[in-house]
Design a protein around this nucleic acid. Sequence first.
DNA 1: GTCTATAGCGGGATAGAC
DNA 2: GTCTATCCCGCTATAGAC
Lengths: 195, 195
Amino acid sequence: MARKQGSHAGVTGPKVRAAALRLIARYGYAAVSMRQIAAAVGVQAGALYNYTPDKQSLLFDLMHSHMVALLDALDGANLQGSPLQQLEQFTRFHIRFHLPRADDVFVSYMELRNLSEQNFAKIEALRHAYEDRLEAILKAGQDTGDFAVPDTRITTMALIAMLTGLEKWYRSDGRLGVAEIEGMYWDLVRKAVAA
Amino acid sequence: MARKQGSHAGVTGPKVRAAALRLIARYGYAAVSMRQIAAAVGVQAGALYNYTPDKQSLLFDLMHSHMVALLDALDGANLQGSPLQQLEQFTRFHIRFHLPRADDVFVSYMELRNLSEQNFAKIEALRHAYEDRLEAILKAGQDTGDFAVPDTRITTMALIAMLTGLEKWYRSDGRLGVAEIEGMYWDLVRKAVAA
DNA sequence: GTCTATAGCGGGATAGAC
DNA sequence: GTCTATCCCGCTATAGAC
């Protein structure tokens, strides 16, 4: 509470990010203007530049935060046990982490084209690191004979695409709860890689 | 050959569509200008309006053509045999149809947000029809006991997401040929739905 | 069917007052 | 930290000559 009275620091910044995330997820980065974001926050367009040097940096920050949060959460999940157990933990973690973050997922997977070359490389590296976690589990299970997949890299991409595709149709007010969804997807994953 | 000499009709139109498809796939609908498309074709921007009433219609035509071609090709594939055989045929058909059409796939799956409400509804109906073909196979196999999936609708979405995700990483000059890819994905699909 | 020219609008980003 | 005002640019779409 030592913050200066009347200052909006620490309040407007997150609001800008939240508004940008929501608008970009809905309409796309190129289609959303700084004026629209400002209006959603309740400020004039010029004020946004107190929080981001430019529009491109704003997009990058959103995507970077999402990927870092994803990797941190995966570290925190502390997967352990047999390859089969770790694969189940990974599957459930992936669904639980992504389902409540539909906007982040849409932005992070659909706006890659709109990143500058350097920003793209950074995001891709993080995404690759995440994929590698899954592939390591598949490789371990392949070695122990628990799994029998045609190719660990291709299976990694196939499983992540399958799990992430969930975002496209899942509605939290639908007929199925998260726990049921998790169970069904785990069932598909488990059988697909089974020896 | 009765076409008037000096007329570009029948030539420029397809060029416009091809250039628009390529540019939109790469940079996104909102980020591509009519001037860019015109430059790629080799005409001035105003000339494009001889081939489309506006930019939105151009996008819709690209997506609509793709979906109609997909459904027509599926009809032409004439799937038959047991549910297991039909599922294999569908899986291989899906991969063979989509792999050489990366631009169409990107546009059709990433530009839905940029369609007008009415155009969106038409494309969604076509996409739904395609999904229904796969779900019908799963239901049939569920009835005969060949398959044991948790939910035919969810499995449909999961399998299509998995198969379409192939577009994101496949490179025709990579280490794997189409036949090998088909085999690996069919392996994953077959096991995932197995009883 | 294509061109040039332009209307009319909205974009990102900055300057300087408060 | 936010405002107003503005610069400069590019956009879609149209008009009218050829």
